[in-house]
Amino acid sequence: MAAPEGQEAIVAEPQRPITNILIIIAMQTEALPVVNKFHLTEDPHSPFPQGVPWVRYHGTYKDLNINLIWPGKDPTLGVDSVGTISSALVTYAAIQALQPDLIINAGTAGGFKAKGASVGDIFIVSDCAFHDRRIPIPVFDLYGVGLRKAFETPNLTKELDLKVARLSTGDSLDTTEQDESSILANDATVKDMEGAAVAYVAELLKVPAFFIKAVTDIVDGDKPTAEEFLQNLASVTAALDVAVEKVISFINGKCVSEL
């Protein structure tokens, strides 16, 4: 899973204190504990186009202005707007509207016991890639995988004693044999439905982004994925909430170069 030749790293302003954070969270169940923890309020005057379901919560914590964006409920079906399309769209729109210094994509993920993951583990992501964009043509195949490095946070990772993992992203909750093969090739410990899409947009617009993922289910375990995910969602979301609080506290008063 080596980085593609010629891929440029995100360039941030290393000496300016971070003041404006954008948090992208895909599911309402994952978002509301963070909203409540930091006493964020829903923006009644959305900065987004009329008719989209995307929700902005905002507030301040010490020296930080926090914006949390949740893609909202699908207007037709009423379920969380999960997946790469919604995540890419809200990330792009939020960067344009809010001009963040830093992006945090927080959420739940599946983990692989073969790579040492257990339910409840919290990971900082080192690299993101896709596992379901198969384009078997030279160079297009690399584009499909879309490998990108997350913004490195060595001080934060060490201080909070967080595990580091590679993330693989796809638009399905279950895992096909082809997906498994691609995830293995990506050397991923965790899989989700948003991360690599957020990373793609963040790199395009040159905003540093990192990823916090909490394991709800074991992909290569004995339980059906959907059943285990729903069973553990509440407790793992609570653990994710605690981790996000610690991360935000660590970031306060620091420059990106100090992360």
Rank of each mutant, 00 (worst) to 15 (best):
L167G: 05
T169V: 10
V11L: 04
L64N: 06
K213A: 00
Q50C: 10
G78T: 11
G195A: 13
Q231E: 10
V145M: 08
S249G: 03
V236Q: 00
T176V: 09
E228G: 00
I85L: 14
V35D: 06
F151V: 06
S81N: 13
D121S: 02
A196L: 01
K246S: 15
L68Y: 09
N105M: 07
G83R: 00
A109L: 07
H45F: 00
F130H: 05
K73P: 00
S257H: 02
L40I: 02
I104S: 03
T175G: 03
P47K: 14
V82Y: 03
N65G: 10
S249F: 07
L142D: 12
G253V: 02
G78D: 09
D174I: 11
P224R: 04
D121N: 09
M1N: 01
L22I: 13
L32T: 11
M27C: 05
L184A: 15
L98P: 07
L156F: 03
Q178N: 15
L68N: 06
E228I: 05
A188Q: 08
G170F: 01
I66Q: 04
E5Q: 12
S249I: 12
F130S: 03
S172K: 12
A234M: 06
V207N: 07
T19K: 15
L22T: 09
P100Q: 14
V55L: 10
S235D: 13
H39I: 08
A165I: 12
V139Y: 10
D121T: 03
V55G: 05
A129Q: 03
Q28Y: 03
M27H: 01
G72R: 00
V207K: 02
P154R: 14
S168I: 10
P44F: 05
P224V: 07
V55I: 14
T108I: 15
K37F: 04
N105F: 07
G83V: 09
W70G: 01
P14L: 06
I10V: 13
K113C: 13
I218L: 15
L204W: 05
E159L: 07
N105D: 11
Y143E: 01
S182L: 12
E159K: 12
V145G: 06
M27A: 03
V190H: 13
V125I: 15
R16V: 09
F140Y: 15
D241E: 14
L205T: 08
